[in-house]
Design a binder for these strands. Sequence first.
DNA 1: TTGTACGCGTTATCAT
DNA 2: ATGATAACGCGTACAA
Lengths: 323, 323
Amino acid sequence: MVTIKEVAEEAGVSVATVSRVINQNGYVSEETLEKVKSVIDKLNYKPNSIARSLYHKTSNMIGLIIPDITNPFFPELARAVEDVAMMYGFKVVLCNSDQNPEKEMKYLDLFKEKYVDGIIFTTQSQESTVYSDLNVPIVALDRIGDTTIPSVVSNNYKGAKKATELLLQKGVKNIAHIRGPKNIAPSEARYHGFIDAVEGKGVNYTISEAEFQLKDAERKAEQFFETHTGIDGIFCSNDTIAAGFLKVALKKGIKVPEDLQIVGFDGSFFGEFIYPELTTVSQPIYDMGAVATRLLIKIIQGNQPEKLLYEMPTTIIERGTTR
Amino acid sequence: MVTIKEVAEEAGVSVATVSRVINQNGYVSEETLEKVKSVIDKLNYKPNSIARSLYHKTSNMIGLIIPDITNPFFPELARAVEDVAMMYGFKVVLCNSDQNPEKEMKYLDLFKEKYVDGIIFTTQSQESTVYSDLNVPIVALDRIGDTTIPSVVSNNYKGAKKATELLLQKGVKNIAHIRGPKNIAPSEARYHGFIDAVEGKGVNYTISEAEFQLKDAERKAEQFFETHTGIDGIFCSNDTIAAGFLKVALKKGIKVPEDLQIVGFDGSFFGEFIYPELTTVSQPIYDMGAVATRLLIKIIQGNQPEKLLYEMPTTIIERGTTR
DNA sequence: TTGTACGCGTTATCAT
DNA sequence: ATGATAACGCGTACAA
């Protein structure tokens, strides 16, 4: 690893001069400029970013905390964050919290130690690790409440309402909503969207619950189809649950979308892998990540965010599980 | 951010003493030990890891370069790397290279600047960015050739052979292999596994090719079923291709697995999301990541790897697309 | 226009 | 057993 000192010696100048040409500030004569530049090239000198960090107390890194990269929702998000971050010269440290507050705390400490310039985090759970008094720019994704932290969310309520209305409009008479876990904010919002779409409309509806996991969804689906008959439309709280219900329905010989229509939520890529393809409420996942990152960088650069809540629109993608 | 100096002042000792209690080396009397410890707790002091890095030229970070976290193969791998790394006190910087040599080089420079202690990388392409003369411990995943770098791979050849033999044994008479891109090593190995399983066995076989992407697979499947009749078994180079072919077959009313059996490769999670569930050759993705990380850490700690090639076994998971 | 010297927070060597 | 101090690589007052 070649240092600024070696460059200085080789160029016959002082380290200060070299520093000046690197950072393009201060005066430096045309002549020495060229000289130093050529030596930098020759030695393939790269300023040591650790030393820089120590001095500046910044690292050009941003920390990203997500529950689990293995959950299909997050890779695209992470990708967006990295793409945008890189575009602005920031690197990304990715951490999987597993929704575990201890882990989250550990990562936050880590981030402070490393002088990360900002933090983006997603928690699907309600209970909050203390993310305030952290003294580092921070943006939340998919998180509500905690009104002091700028957040980027998608419009879960509205998307759910639209999805339910779509089913109704497609002639569904007996509709079900398979809601997600109660402690997860988006799941709650989607539930309310559903309720507000069916209440007072004179339609029969029923509510069940499932985890956001295929196996559990399948179990719940088995039970569901045992105990409920005549259901001709299901709005599921996410695509994983929808996939589970679709699988079981198909297995039972129920015709989709002829006799049963299904709508999921998220716009996960695997919605296109299954047949019939899943109709779903698509979240602009990549955009959410990109917006959050731009917002964070803005804050890092000293600008105040214009608003605290950035709500991104959802889109219905009609595919094979609706008529 | 409280520094070692502040702790020293508060405790009425020198920074050297504080450093000794932190690092548990050198002599320090019982009395001052207690005193310093309590001050550290009181002030919630955490040693600044940047300053440490500057001195030690290590960072307790490892760099991970993958093509694209959005590709379903990689989240699990990344997760494994992070889990194991964390277990040993290392953090992970994740980078998506998009198979782009320029990006790779950029990340490698970045890693050197940041004093990463080691690098794990995956390239599916053959052409090699110069990963040697890097002067940093390094481990390759899913990569062959380039014999100087320790590698962790799964046994693509053998898995493909077994998959093909499974189809044959299940009574397939006219078999097809949909191979992946020619410049991707695993795709090549699987192709040879297939060939060696059918050659000289007196079975009819045919080869087609598709990208590892759903849309392309579907297009190729449409063409395939137009031009080939009587095919009753397909071994696909990965699960994505298999999903595409299955979808199109289902759409065309071909009965799976009665009239057509399909086997994929990878063991991707979405194999269980589709119906019938995909029979596949499962790679121990998590284990591969874990083994690679342990290997890297071993090297970082100064031990030489026992061998240069760690070959992990594949397993056939029989599910709904075979009889 | 250029160079000297100190500070960023930590560790390790060498005195004491 | 403890303290002073150089060093890690860089950036910037300040002096020249």
